[in-house]
């Protein structure tokens, strides 16, 4: 007998349903911890555990959604170009800030996880934690980590940046709101950028572009940095 769960429509349907409900919740209460992706993930996992359906069965249908991640990354290239054209002012200092911040982000998380005795697979999964989720997932496939762990950590980092980034940076005597925006986009990708847009529109533009540039840089350098640092560890 074939169970309903085994049909591809099952995983596809509950993903869309969970996301729809999570988005309604977010609109209603507008609270950063009600991040729709996080809420739908938790809801789907809880549901699957309750009805004892394993991930592979769920993924029978859900994989048709995750397939589109690949063309979406190409689409991000188009978005990055658009953002690039928006800011006409001198980009050199800005790109320096993002490049240094983005590279240090990769190096510090690799070194810290090694110092904290994380197994190598965890270090490989954390390296890309600052960039937008689809890019981070692709990087982790290359660095041979666990993409699912990356996805969760990346979203958590974004929520942290969104919830505490502005207050933290002000406490550390950062006054320029453009600098706060740049930092949020570099360290906390799209979820952090959402907070920068609330701060002011120009800070939001800086944040969005920082996310893009860091996405490009991190995608290219992470596999090499992981290899290099793990060699010495």
């Amino acid at each position: 007998m074939i169970h309903f769960y085994d049909l591809p429509v099952f995983g596809f349907f509950i993903t869309i349903l969970a996301f729809y409900i999570a988005q309604r919740l977010k609109k209603r209460f507008n609270y950063v911890f009600l991040n729709p992706v996080l809420v739908s993930m938790v809801a789907i996992i809880t549901f699957l555990e309750c009805v004892s359906v394993d991930f592979d069965t769920y993924n029978n249908g859900a994989k048709y959604l995750s397939f589109f991640l690949s063309p979406t990354i190409v689409a991000l290239g188009v978005l990055f170009y658009e953002k690039f054209e928006q800011i006409k002012s001198n980009l050199k200092p800005f790109i320096t800030a993002v490049a240094v911040g983005g590279t240090i982000s990769i190096i510090t998380v690799i070194v810290l996880s090694i110092l904290l005795h994380a197994p190598e697979i965890i270090t490989r999964s954390l390296a890309a934690k600052s960039v937008t989720t689809p890019i981070a997932i692709e990087i982790t496939k290359i660095t041979k980590g666990i993409p699912s762990i990356t996805a969760v950590v990346v979203i958590a980092v974004g929520i942290f940046g969104n919830a505490f980034g502005v207050e933290l940076l002000r406490f550390l005597k950062i006054k320029s709101s453009n600098a706060i925006g740049t930092a949020l986009g570099t360290a906390a990708h799209g979820i952090g950028t959402a907070r920068a847009i609330e701060l002011d529109p120009l800070a939001g533009a800086y944040s969005g572009l920082a996310m893009c540039i860091n996405g490009l840089i991190t995608a290219v350098v992470t596999p090499y940095l992981v290899q290099l640092i793990l060699q010495f560890a």
Partner: peptide, 14 residues
């Protein structure tokens, strides 16, 4: 629709 596409990866955490 990007966010919808990476929910299955998040669920994979289970």
């Amino acid at each position: 629709y990007m966010v919808l596409f990476f929910i299955p990866y998040g669920v994979g955490m289970m």
